[in-house]
Amino acid sequence: MNAAGIGVDAGSTVVKACAVTAAGSRIWQHVELTEPRLEEQARRIAALAREQAGAAPLVATGYGRKLVAGAERAITEITCHARGVFAELGSGGTVVDIGGQDSKVISVGADGSVRNFAMNDKCAAGTGRFLEVTAARLRLAVEEIGAMALAAAEEVPISSTCAVFAESEIVSLIARGAALEAIVRGLHRSLVARLASLVRSLGIVEPVALSGGVARNPAIAAFLAEALGCEVKLPEAPQLMGAYGAALLALD
């Protein structure tokens, strides 16, 4: 493979890597869970990318972006997700990136540049971590809760947006005999309410697209579309958008 650009997204939960041709097509990708020794892991993944996709300029992004040895540049995930989603969908608009540690809403101009952005505060509310913590309390796999939420016939409102308080609210709901599916649906609604308010703080500019690993949860896109009153688009590989954007920026 002859990669022209490589992107490594060292995220808080998952490390993603991607290589693109000079024309911007994805030709290689790699995903693995983030390890505690992120610096070593990033070095290994960068070497793997160059071995399998070819030597090319590398741009690092994600919360561990400064730990990726050999990167020509470190660029924030805000700029990278905007670039990745813009290339994938071919238009500006609003990108909602739900990561493991934080969520961002990015307003993307018609030329693919970042126009404005908003980010959640130092808190797990509105992030993948919220779902992880609450799913663990219910002893459910995080991969199955989206479908469960969509299939639920009932919904229990979860008033807490804080992951810690939501966990204790779940304990109370279980004690009161609430159905598991209804709780799961309520949890999704709670997370989406937080995201929707972040989107509204920036102003809804359509099309709205989701990126980040949590976008693979089908209930998030469905509930967000409902909350915003507009269609929510999904790129083919939402989890890869940061790494893809970084690889595209490596071409510049």
Binding site: Y63, T76, E77, K122
Partner: peptide, 15 residues
């Protein structure tokens, strides 16, 4: 200074 603030500052300058 939290990492999230650092990311915001860097992203703002990039923007």
């Amino acid at each position: 200074l939290p990492d999230q603030i650092l990311t915001r500052l860097e992203a703002f300058v990039e923007m």
